[in-house]
Design a protein around this nucleic acid. Sequence first.
DNA 1: TCCCGCGCTGAGAACGTTCTCAATTCGACG
DNA 2: CGTCGAATTGAGAACGTTCTCAGCGCGGGA
Lengths: 337, 337
Amino acid sequence: MSRWPTIIDVAKLAGVSKATAARVLNGQQDLVRDVTQQRVLAAAKELGYVRNAVAGSLRTDQTYMVALSIPDITNPFWPVVARGVQDTLEAEGYATVIVNSDWKSERETKFLTLVRRNRFDGLIINAVDTSSQELETLNIPVVILGGGSNHPRLDAVGSDTVQGTDAALQHLFDLGHRRIGLISALNRRHYSTQADRYIEFHQRHNLPLDRSILIEGDFTEEAGYDAMHSLMRLPLPPTAVLASNDNIAIGAMKAARALGHRIPEEVSIVGMDDIHAAATTSPALTTVAKPKYDIGVTAARILIQRISEPEMTAVQKRKLPCELIVRGSTAAPRTSS
Amino acid sequence: MSRWPTIIDVAKLAGVSKATAARVLNGQQDLVRDVTQQRVLAAAKELGYVRNAVAGSLRTDQTYMVALSIPDITNPFWPVVARGVQDTLEAEGYATVIVNSDWKSERETKFLTLVRRNRFDGLIINAVDTSSQELETLNIPVVILGGGSNHPRLDAVGSDTVQGTDAALQHLFDLGHRRIGLISALNRRHYSTQADRYIEFHQRHNLPLDRSILIEGDFTEEAGYDAMHSLMRLPLPPTAVLASNDNIAIGAMKAARALGHRIPEEVSIVGMDDIHAAATTSPALTTVAKPKYDIGVTAARILIQRISEPEMTAVQKRKLPCELIVRGSTAAPRTSS
DNA sequence: TCCCGCGCTGAGAACGTTCTCAATTCGACG
DNA sequence: CGTCGAATTGAGAACGTTCTCAGCGCGGGA
């Protein structure tokens, strides 16, 4: 358990002061004579010197660590986002600490303490229930994952759910569907974008709005199953259903099948997110793909920019486009009205 | 951007020395008079003092950070393992840094430097191509994820693939299958456990061994698709197929369906891992569930133990039991031979 | 010859914590 | 009222780095 060599050891071996050794081992080589440089480099190599980032951070107040808070890494949506964040940050020399908030604000609060305590350089967060205030008193760059409408003064990166929802509805409309059900989930007690667009879409196309085929649940497969179940047992069931996310859609598919309805012949289903499992159902799920990886990448880029240019002021709100992926779960309705 | 208050500020406000303040703010309260304690606590609260972990780490050489190296967080197997690790470590006050090796040894090596540089307290790693030597020179506790046969002197946590494979084969055998195909993947150029067990199983049950229905690919859905495709076009195709993991199995299901074979009526398929998507296919995939979460938990527990009791010596090799989950992709063969 | 400036190097402070050791206070007891 | 041990507190070093400031040697210009 011999201690790791420090820069002092390197300096000693090279016969220089630690200041000079430090200059060589960091970016200031141009200040050091070439021969000296070689000596230091050789010494460092011989000792197997590795910079102690902890000590460095204490001095520079830069940890090159970034925190990423998401609801749950186990939820198939998030790993891809996380990967985008990690890849981008890693390329710039940052390490990422991921925590799961489980949608619980206590966990989030606890996490913010961790961020402060460990002096992370930045934070990317899908904020469940944290106020802008708390976030801003951290005094480090913060990027919100999602719309970020609750945090007007913070940068935010999300997907364009308006456009995505419209694309899905349009797709169903174009196929001939006129009676489209919606299984939406409430995001943090707010009325969902899907529902808004759904209503707007019906108005725009002069379609009758039947609120009985507009169901609210949560983001789970079970909720989707239950909702679809009640939907299909209506006297006049919808010919197509749009779900707030793929989990709901998958649950809905199961319910439809359980009730003996064939997909897409008897009922079309569209999901949202394009998680891995969406491609493996049969029929494969038509869905609105969110640019998960790009969301992560973009958030990380903005964060890095904020870290390196603290004077940058204009708040950035980015909504990345969604893409409709037509697979096998949608088709024209059996009897086009 | 006013600086965070330090323990010195707290001490000053409370009218004590920083040593006393430190004693109160850490675990040594019993050394401090009660009134003094209150004063310090009040001062800390008033200033909103948060311990600077970086400075603390420099002094104590403990960072309370642990590194977790996995192939790819995007691969549905790993998030669950990661979650087990994180939950366990977090409960003990450790933060986790996850990196993706992408099965590339350069990335792994680079990562080991990160571990050294940042003085992480421990490492949990699904080692792709790193020698025990490299791992051991880190001089910190290391737990291997997987069999760990390459690292005899390091603790390892994996699943009991022998038992799992046997259970799957036995299940198919019990259903009446006598001609069982195997689509296995090579793990790091080693002969797969599945193949070993497969052969052993056939010997044990006196079944003829036909190597033409024993296919090797890699761990992807595409490989599964291709393998299944060739399997089903054999003059005498197998009545059941065991796949090395769920991705392969899902690919195999698609291939079978594409060729017009119904599952499970005409061919049974068993996967391995029990990833999220396995439950969402139709029919839902029968699979050997690996105790992913528990693997993470166990690895983290062992790591914590090693960190807190460095003198503990006996190497721990844990193989957690798998569980066969029978769903809809297996049934008795059409014509039981 | 002297001085100045430049190129290079070294000494040492600072970051905020922990912890050792010594100093001080306190209470009890003789 | 003095003494002693225990309880409580303070001074200051140490962790390994970065970085400011000053010093040194040397060459060229006055």
